[in-house]
Design a protein around this nucleic acid. Structure first.
Ligand code: SF4
Ligand code: SF4
Lengths: 137, 137
DNA sequence: TACAATTACTACTTAAAGGTAGAATTAAAA
DNA sequence: TTTTAATTCTACCTTTAAGTAGTAATTGTA
């Protein structure tokens, strides 16, 4: 009952990037060191974020990464989607999901509310929101 | 963001057992076939449930499994605990959890409510509840 | 007692997630 | 133009979850 490492890392990376005042380019070495994420794994994740269209990369000397969209327009759920980690509408608590609405177990209705809260939280929290408040994550 | 296979299987197995009227012994072969769970994997899980004290096993011919406690006294969270799959109090949404209360990200407070609902759901739903309602899972 | 039906144990295999290594590519700077 | 600092690609390694195989131990029944 937890997000994958990749999702966690991605959120931390992007939240850190969003937290920088100027939208300067940031390179993988700096990000890996600052956030204590294995360099090679970080670059792998960054490449996925580039492919997903969340950030753009500038290759070559003096290169790095920057956001493609405004941080207020990137939602946490957008990040989770990339790693197939978001809470789907049809997703059953038990991960079973071959029961229909007509025929539900005792958990079915109880799961609706937390599920909606989680979806709301992920869908309505932008990187700007996360970066703005509190300390770094 | 989902329970492990072992947890899912265990819940389904126990819910099915709880659903039987008489508290007869049920053997692994029957359970595996009825619930479409790989026989060998099922016996592995059953052994863990025995060790955890949820069910007792009778070995040898005419043997099988039966509950050790009343089904109204076995909570879903008891099952999740065995497979280390329950939602912990300290558990951060992001699985990071090196932030303290003083220094929280935008998700921190929003996570509290769904977390409590999940915990409540798992802690207050017994096998009897699940078995009684609706169809088999 | 011998047999058959059952769970328990030990060890292995497979699949997926997590992580690493090295070379190829790119482009600014010297 | 050469060097250097950066991303990207391909391939591999490691760890954990998931699943399988074979055998030992147990016990009711014939
Ligand atoms: S009835 Fe229960 S098992 Fe079936 S989809 Fe709903 S929550 Fe999942
Ligand atoms: S502040 Fe955010 S990252 Fe830190 S423990 Fe709370 S939810 Fe997790």
């Amino acid at each position: 009952m937890q997000l994958s490492n990749s999702s966690q890392y991605a959120i931390r990376i992007l939240a850190y990037m969003a937290d920088q005042k100027d939208s300067r380019l940031m390179n993988a070495t700096e990000l890996a060191e600052t956030l204590s994420i294995p360099y090679k794994f970080l670059t792998k994740i960054m490449t996925e974020l580039v492919k997903a269209g969340l950030v753009v990369s500038i290759r070559g000397r003096e290169g790095g990464y920057k956001f493609k969209k405004k941080t207020s327009e990137i939602m946490v759920s957008d990040i989770l989607d990339i790693f197939n980690d978001s809470v789907k509408d049809e997703q059953c608590v038990l991960g079973i999901g071959f029961c229909n609405g007509m025929c539900k177990c005792a958990l079915h209705d109880q799961w609706m509310e937390p599920k909606h809260l989680l979806q709301k939280m992920f869908r309505e929290s932008s990187l700007e929101d996360i970066a703005g408040e509190g300390c770094k994550i």
